[in-house]
Amino acid sequence: MDDFLVRALLAGLGVAALTGPLGAFVVWRRMAFFGDTLAHAALLGVALGLAFEVNLTVGVVGVCIATALMLIGVRRRSGLASDTILGILSHGTLALGLVAMSFLEKVRFDLLGYLFGDILAVTLTDLTWIYAGGAVILVAIFLIWRPLLSATVHEDLARAEGVPVDRVNIVFVVCIALVVATAMKVVGILLVAALLIIPAAAVRAFCRTPEQMAVAAVVAGWLAVCGGLGMSVLADTPAGPSIIVVALCLFIVGAGVPVFRSAR
């Protein structure tokens, strides 16, 4: 196998190991749109990173975290419905990012690469980011697992039982921002949210506990990455979208099986 394919596979598997458990929480907490918003904000991070010549991952992580914290703050204070706020921030940051990029005449960059991902161009540095960042995220999620799950089931009940709900939520949202920044390289800004939601949704019907679902979502993500890369190599399709297409097929099968089962 070529080196670039090995790197692509490692990057994909590493990212799917993160999007599994976090994606499960995104599904349980009905935060699909939230993931999408952070992904769109990432483009602004890229633009700022290029403009100020800082590491792009740092730029993306910074903007994503800022957007996430802003969302938490705004939701608490303003009277607007949260999907309205998400819509404003999601498309507002995407537009800002695109406009900001148009000013960068002197810098060479690949806009499509950011929008749709460029997993076949993953470098060793990218891999280091994915695995080092990924380890931090997984440890953080492991540490806050029970309180986070408790707050997901019922926030007031968790609070009454002494769970520091606000702090746990902030850790969770920062983790999501970090995952978006790492997953962006693999499937691109437009499809990051899909990698969070689809594998988790695909395995729902086969799980009896939250932990099973988180692990099964990782496995589904791995299948999607392997299948998508294989498809890309054999049929010369774009890698990022191919991964999501395979994930979508898994979801259709996963959602179809229980229907078939009960129809028998």
Partner: peptide
């Protein structure tokens, strides 16, 4: 505390045992 109308999202698989463990 036993809150009113605690409805858990159906997408969250959970057994009674696991719920009590929370």
């Amino acid at each position: 505390y036993m809150p009113q109308r605690l409805a858990v999202d159906r997408n969250l698989p959970m057994t009674v045992r696991r719920f009590l463990g929370l």
